[in-house]
Design a protein around this nucleic acid. Structure first.
Length: 420
RNA sequence: GGGUCGGUACCCAAGCGGCCAAAGGGAGCAGACUGUAAAUCUGCCGGCUCAGCCUUCGAAGGUUCGAAUCCUUCUCGGCCCA
């Protein structure tokens, strides 16, 4: 199975420029491709993984990936898929975001020297020095406003009451210029991205054709959605980030473990680097006994390893085993230490535990005393596996290994107290 | 600048002088059933020292025994006119 067929089988191809031409080019030998990531936040999130993994898949197939940090495009803001104008980020924030994102862009790819070594680029490097008049002559002249107005992202904004600033209107020119620059100077022949990027990507293809009289390729993947069609990658507390300081490896792994059955097959195909045959085998296992959640576990382990490394993955897995494995009183001291690192935890004096409501609020398992009281009435809390009621005394519960109190709200919210 | 309609809890949205901490829906939380899934059912969903009290309906004043509801000013947003 060649690369294109594999991508298609995984449901990763939304659109491409001339498919047979692209297939022919890929068959000829290694090529370079790029995917851009704008620094709209100080971390990438799980939604960006598809793009990152796209680069990885191509690299594994012998091609050369260029992850691009949008230091320049991030200053302008992409109007695609947005109903209103973005707030511009100040320079300091932007620079900080770029530096964080660049670290993450280096995680999934192989940067060691070789013919298909990955290379990180930042479009600010070639965009900032360009003078306005040169830009208008060298880029603007090749693009008609008629064409730009025809773009879906522009049209919808023109029809809305919010309007569209000239700045955002110009966004696709910058991105088109990126593609041209990389084509001309780095031999990058393909740009990939989410389906919302199609317009911006083909703007680059057009620019290369008109400005350089060459032909380049474009490919987009479908945007990932959840079973109910809502936005993918949002958990209760917001986005699921790739930065371990924003979303711990444990939370990251749990996000994948808790994926719906109805979506897990699709996610495996889209996110896993395992072959379609291997994925098929995992899914067969899963369907034979869905309650074992083999597919979710496979997905969670692989991605946590990719993003956070082997050690973080095994610590997260160990913690999950204690938290969801049944009787916490059986957990080893080592396992509890792992839990302490992965789950919100605190150290409190034994005497403070007598005030149950205050304790629950302090450790974040309730938003107010009233909330704590209600949840207690509904029997929503457990401490070391024992269900609590309104009159429960935490001091009456035997601590694990003489020092730990593992509190649980509902099924998946935990807090570990170390008694001092 | 003129006119007009509107700003209600996390979001959408009823309410238009007392029975309003405020209908309904969504989201969220807990329980039952389960498989760290989905669906379904039940309860909760401003705060507190919780059969009561306190603070809320853009902001500030006012009318009234009593205001989310009426009046004034301000403020923000939509639409129409200039």
């Amino acid at each position: 199975m060649d690369l294109l067929d594999d991508l298609a089988a995984r449901g990763l191809i939304h659109d491409t420029t001339d498919r047979t031409a692209l297939a022919a080019r890929l068959a000829q030998g290694p090529m370079s491709l790029y995917v851009g990531f704008d620094p709209t936040a100080d971390s990438l999130h799980v939604g960006h993984l598809v793009g990152q993994l796209f680069l990885r898949r191509f690299q594994l197939a012998g091609h050369r990936p260029f992850p691009l940090a949008g230091g320049a495009t991030g200053m302008v803001g992409d109007p695609s898929g947005r109903s209103d104008e973005r707030n511009l980020l100040d320079l300091e924030t932007l620079r900080h975001n770029v530096s964080r994102i660049e670290l993450q862009l280096q995680r999934l790819l192989d940067f060691s020297p070789g013919p298909n070594q990955a290379r990180l680029v930042n479009n600010a490097d070639w965009t900032e020095p360009v003078r306005l008049l040169d830009f208008l002559r060298d880029v603007g002249k090749f693009v008609t406003v008629n064409q730009m107005l025809a773009k879906e992202s522009v049209k919808s904004r023109l029809d809305s009451d919010n309007g569209l600033s000239f700045t955002e209107f110009s966004y696709s020119l910058l991105q088109a210029n990126d593609f041209r620059h990389l084509y001309e100077h780095e031999g990058v022949e393909l740009q990939a991205g989410g389906s919302d990027q199609w317009g911006n990507i083909v703007a680059g293809v057009d620019l290369i054709r008109r400005g350089l009289s060459k032909s380049a390729h474009a490919m987009t993947h479908p945007l990932v959605t959840k079973a109910d069609g809502s936005k993918f990658g949002k958990s209760v507390d917001g986005a699921v980030w790739l930065d371990p300081d924003k979303t711990s490896p444990y939370q990251f792994r749990q996000f994948w473990v808790q994926v719906d059955d109805s979506m897990v097959g699709r996610y495996l195909q889209m996110f896993s680097l395992a072959s379609m045959e291997e994925i098929g085998a995992v899914l067969a296992d899963h369907e034979a006994a869905p309650e074992r959640r083999v597919a979710q576990r496979a997905l969670a382990s692989e991605l946590t390893r990719l993003v956070h490394g082997d050690d973080a993955e095994s610590a997260a897995a160990q913690a999950a085993t204690v938290l969801f494995g049944g009787d916490p009183t059986m957990a080893s001291a080592d396992a509890l230490a792992a839990v302490a690192r992965e789950v919100p935890s605190s150290e409190r004096p034994a005497a403070s535990l007598d005030d149950l409501l205050t304790t629950l609020v302090d450790i974040g398992l309730a938003t107010s005393n009233g909330d704590a009281r209600r949840t207690l009435q509904q029997r929503g809390y457990r401490a070391n596996g024992v269900q609590l009621d309104e009159n429960a005394q935490l001091s009456a519960i035997a601590p694990l290994h003489n020092q730990y109190l593992l509190l649980r709200k509902g099924k998946a919210n935990h807090h570990l107290i170390k008694i001092s």
